[in-house]
């Protein structure tokens, strides 16, 4: 089956779970910006966990050469088939030559479109992820994001077998809450000892604005400065969600395509669940932070995973 890109939207690319064990070689972690929406998309389209998926910004339009099964997820996601609106977060059947439009009501948010089948895209360094900066992945294997008239080859299952697939739908109240108004949880770590108590107080008592300088590498925020007392340090590994503070005091939260090593002081890291939430904030949105104990952070992740597994069992 061919899936043809009629309109690529603003910035759309192929992602899977990302490169594992390759950061020591300098490859960025890569992977979906919003892991939670990515997993739901694959689950709802009856795909295996690590199947490639489209991460879409703007309005993407695709034509399917065969009947197939899809699912769209993400913050304020909208799905249309041949111009008519369809339910989202749900197993969706499309017919041969159907035109599918996927977008978010909130410009700049990421939506995920999973298409059932085996994606005929090559892997580099163990992953199908597109990383522009590293010239890796993408359908041409050179790190280019999707372009108009690109064609993705997918070996789908026979249409006869569609009837064996149950209709999975994630109820609205079970969908991830992307609201910006609950504070983002930060686990102190790294060079936190070099940030004064006053600094930390300022950090948790201020409102930060998501700046226009956001991309897959990092989200730059603007607000009260929180510079550390550390002037030089050796480059070291940067973990996902790390809050890096350059000398100007404006925090940058490091995301999926971040460089592997860096020499700016870091105050701590976001709770992993909040990384997905941050990924879906757009420039101009206001956010705040609260410190969270390590144990509490782990408990929140474990609880989330448990509920997720249970939900999947109910829907499967």
């Amino acid at each position: 089956m061919q899936v043809e890109v009629i309109s690529k939207g603003l910035f759309s690319l192929i992602v899977d779970e990302g490169r594992k064990g390759k950061q020591r070689q300098g490859f960025s972690q890569s992977g979906p910006m919003d892991t939670i929406a990515f997993h739901w998309a694959n689950f709802l389209a009856h795909n295996e966990d690590n199947t490639p998926c489209l991460e879409i910004m703007g309005n993407m339009s695709l034509r399917f050469s065969e009947a197939c099964v899809i699912a769209a997820t993400g913050r304020q996601v909208k799905l249309k088939v041949n111009g008519s609106a369809q339910p989202v977060y749900r197993t969706t059947f499309v017919e041969k030559n159907d035109i599918v439009d996927v977008s978010s009501e909130c410009l700049g948010c990421k939506v995920y479109l999973s298409i059932l089948g085996q994606w005929q895209v090559s892997k580099s360094a163990g992953s199908a992820c597109t990383v522009v900066r590293e010239s890796l992945g993408g359908i041409h294997g050179n790190g280019q994001v999707l372009q108009d008239s690109d064609v993705i080859e997918i070996v789908s299952i026979a249409e006869l077998n569609f009837k064996n697939l149950n209709l999975r739908e994630l109820p609205v109240e079970k969908r991830f809450n992307y609201q910006a108004n609950t504070p983002f949880k930060v686990i102190k770590g790294y060079q936190e000892a070099f940030f004064s108590d006053v600094c930390k107080r300022i950090f948790t008592n201020s409102i930060y604005t998501v700046s226009p300088s956001i991309d897959r590498m990092g989200y730059r925020l603007t607000g009260e400065g929180v510079a550390s007392s550390l002037s030089t340090m050796r480059s070291e590994a940067i973990h996902i969600g790390a809050i890096q503070v350059p000398p100007d005091g404006q925090p940058i939260i490091m995301m999926r395509d971040r460089q592997t090593l860096g020499g700016y002081p870091k105050l701590g890291c976001l709770n992993p669940l909040d990384v997905s939430r941050l990924a879906q904030q757009v420039p101009g949105e206001q956010i705040s932070f609260v410190f969270q104990d390590n144990e509490e952070a782990r408990a929140s992740v474990l609880l989330f995973q448990r509920q997720l597994h249970q939900l999947k069992r109910e829907l499967a």
Binding site: A237, L261, E295
Partner: peptide
């Protein structure tokens, strides 16, 4: 053990939070 990232004088160890804690 999910990922180990060495640098000059440091080593980051990323672990599977569902299996173990720090």
């Amino acid at each position: 053990v999910v990922e180990c990232v060495p640098s000059y004088d440091s080593l980051l160890i990323v672990f599977d939070i569902e299996q173990v804690d720090s």
